[in-house]
Design a protein around this nucleic acid. Structure first.
Length: 674
RNA sequence: GCCUGGGUAGCUCAGUGGUAGAGCAGCGCACUCGUAAUGCGCAGGCCGUGGGUUCAAUCCCCACCCCAGGCUCCA
């Protein structure tokens, strides 16, 4: 007998070699799939390791039943659905080679190489789905088998990608067996004395059978996989390497229930509604003229107004926080970027050179070298430090056409960039102040869910280990002081700098990387920067790069999507729309507009050339925060009917001065309430 | 860059081997209205660009340009 501690059930005894399904309570859950509030069991965690429900229990263990309605359960469902998709593709295109098919955050994909270099098209998705539904209807069991390497290779002798994976696995496992045997190595079970093993899953149905190399676990049968949808076709390189064959990838999603599936599809729709590129067009904010070129936006008056507000805000905050404004040009001699090292390690992202009077010039990809020149223009005293140089600096970077994405990824962008020069003693305090400053600024925009990532020294690095340690410790200290949760990305730093990246979560739960802070361990040396210390000796300053928004363009994209285009009053390009009921009220409308404008509000008036309802509708579609309707009664009593965004019931008879006070308060508080 | 999908009026989209349509937006006229679409009319197009096939191409073929999605998440 083995003693099994089942979470939520208690300690039970089972015959050695029994499966968790032998437990009456589990059998019952499986028999009545809809009864349990947590969903149908799809797998089991034995001492924390996910296993098939049919895995036999050979020794005492702590066991948790994994249901479809959990993250782990969904990933089992998705992974299993990927197998079904592979089977369907294999059935429809005999001779298909299949590569890998993992679950992802919200779904799964599988990479294929079709015979004869064929490609999938969108209509193929329907055929594949149809075949998948047949496989699901057959309820094919997923049966786990374990084989030695040689046997594994022979099972997949017509599947070169699987062979490559098995061979890699064999090498890796051999190494691990020889080594200390790390955790999480259940990919193949290297049982002592038996050599490395690989696991495969075989499902057999009335129409066909299918075998795939897989670590598992899987749901008991394809009958568990009813709620899926294939989403899109894409190309992807084997192992993500563009020098290797390009495979055909199909993305899909799968869920534990029809409700969960349709909720997810609705979420996708919602994200589409919020797409800043669509809203940019609908709200007349910006566009990308092909006459100018990919990734180079022009901002229309309303979009430029939003930019202006953001930039004014950034300037004001920075000046208030002790930053000094600087201004630098957009091109420079190539020699500057040779000295800075950009041409050595960033040339792929730089525009090609321009010749002028025998000298070679480049568009600037970063502001730092020029800010350094400002610092280095004369000898500096410790009394001047920390020196914080700030610029809304426009830079140009060559991004491959495939990665451009609206305002979020462009080729010309404006960074709210600053470089802080300080003494080693000041570094810690500066970073602490800086992280607090970043978070305060971001909070102003209505974000409150932050997470940071601290990237440490990579294998290839420049500088001294001691400097890296000091800088990395200072960054970590700043994060701790700010009480922000962070994870450490070991070895993910740039070769010249450890860094902090700050991520935030938007209104529909998507993560965006915004701010970045780096302690530069290379440029001060390259440019021979120094300051005279209290000891009358020259010392090298520390240099911190940082941007809060990242780029103004990208931050705008984020705000538009976060607020679904309904920007808070202080950011809205038009804050108030005045709508006279009829032409006889237009003079009063003008008067009201004038008063609001005098109070600093951004106002538009829409004349009575079409029905009131139509004009209000247009204002709503433009997501204007306030629509003021003025008619006879208002002229009498110096009021307006206030229609607030998001509210279906307008408030009649509001005194103009009261409205001004309300709107001004929203602006001053930079409130996100409306 | 590569794979898939797409480029038809300002926007969203329909369409056919005989050179084009709708809705919204725009303009004009009428309507003058109290909170999400008033009516009528007008105008608007090198059907992405270049080549080819054809009596005839927006449609079929080839090349190119542009846009979107994907190319990290290791059976």
């Amino acid at each position: 007998m083995v003693t099994v501690d089942v979470e939520g059930v208690g300690v039970v005894s089972l015959h050695r070699g029994s499966t968790i399904k032998d437990l009456p309570v589990v059998a019952e859950m499986l028999a009545r799939p809809d009864s349990g509030e947590g969903g149908t069991p799809v797998a089991v965690a034995v001492n924390g390791e996910l296993r098939d429900l049919s895995a036999s229990l050979e020794s005492d263990a702590a066991v948790r039943i994994v249901t479809g309605a959990s993250d782990a359960g969904r990933s089992v469902i998705r992974h299993s659905t990927a197998h079904v998709m592979a089977q369907a593709v294999r059935d429809l295109w005999p001779g298909t080679r299949y590569a890998i098919g993992p679950s992802t955050e919200d779904g799964f994909y599988y990479d294929f190489e079709l015979p004869g270099g064929l490609h999938f098209t969108d209509t193929d998705l329907e055929r594949i789905e149809k075949r998948m539904r047949e496989i699901v209807a057959e309820g094919q069991p997923f049966v786990r088998e374990e084989h030695g390497i040689a046997e594994g290779l022979s099972i997949f002798d017509d599947q070169p990608y699987k062979v490559e994976i098995i061979e890699a696995l064999a090498g890796e496992t051999a190494g691990r067996v020889a080594g200390e045997g790390e955790a999480g190595g259940e990919a193949s079970n290297a049982i002592a004395g038996e050599g490395p093993m690989v696991s495969v899953y075989r499902n057999t149905g009335s129409s066909a059978s299918f075998v795939d190399l897989c670590r598992g676990p899987h749901v008991p049968s394809t009958g568990y996989l009813d709620h899926f949808k294939l989403l899109k076709v894409a190309g992807s390189y084997w192992r993500g390497d563009e020098k290797r064959p390009q495979l055909q990838r199909i993305y899909g999603t799968a869920w534990e229930s029809e409700e969960a599936l349709s909720a997810y599809l609705k979420r996708l729709e919602e994200a589409e509604m919020r797409d800043h590129r669509k809203l940019g067009t609908d709200l007349d904010l910006f566009h990308f003229p092909s006459e100018i070129g990919g990734g180079l936006p022009v901002f229309h008056p309303k979009g430029a107004m939003i930019r202006t507000i953001l930039e004014d805000f950034a300037r004001k905050e920075h000046l208030g926080a002790g930053y000094l404004p600087v201004w630098t040009p957009h091109v420079a001699r190539s020699t500057l970027y040779e000295k800075s090292g950009h041409l050595a390690w960033y040339a792929d992202n730089m525009y090609p050179p321009m010749e002028m009077e025998g000298a070679e010039y480049r568009l600037k990809p970063m502001n730092c070298p020029m800010h350094i020149l400002v610092y280095a223009n004369k000898s500096r005293s410790y009394r001047e430090l920390p020196m914080r140089l700030f610029e809304l600096g426009t830079v140009y970077r060559f991004e491959r056409s495939g990665v451009l994405h609206g305002l979020a990824r462009v080729r010309g962008l404006t960074q709210d960039d600053a470089h802080i020069f300080c003494t080693p003693e000041q570094l810690h305090g500066e970073l602490e102040t800086l992280v607090a400053f970043v978070l305060e600024v971001l909070k102003t925009f209505g974000f409150d869910d932050f997470e940071a990532e601290l990237s440490t020294r990579p294998d290839k690095f420049v500088g001294e280990v001691a400097d890296w340690d000091l800088a990395t410790d200072a960054l970590a200290g700043a994060l701790s002081a700010a009480k922000i949760s962070y994870r450490v990305a070991e070895g993910e730093g740039a070769f010249y700098a450890p860094k902090i990246d700050i991520h935030l979560t938007d209104a529909i739960g998507r993560r965006w990387q915004v701010s970045t802070l780096q302690v530069d361990l290379q440029l001060p040396a390259r440019f021979g920067l120094s300051y005279i210390g209290t000891d009358n000796e020259r010392h090298q300053p520390y240099m911190v790069h940082r941007a809060l928004f990242g780029s103004v363009e990208r931050f705008m994209a984020l705000l538009i999507e976060h607020y679904a285009g309904a920007l808070p009053v202080w950011l809205a390009p038009v804050q108030v729309l005045v709508v006279p009921v009829g032409t006889s009220h237009e003079n009063y409308g003008q008067e009201v507009s004038g008063r609001l404008a005098a109070a600093g509000l951004r106002v538009e008036m829409r004349q009575a050339d079409e029905p009131l309802g139509a004009r209000i509708r247009k204002g709503k579609l433009e997501k204007v925060p306030y629509i003021l309707v003025v008619g006879d009664e208002d002229i009498q009593s110096h009021t307006a009917g206030v229609n607030r965004r998001g509210s279906s019931k307008p408030q009649r008879g509001v005194k103009i001065e009261d409205f001004i006070a309300e709107a001004a308060d929203q602006v001053v508080r930079r409130s996100s309430e409306l």
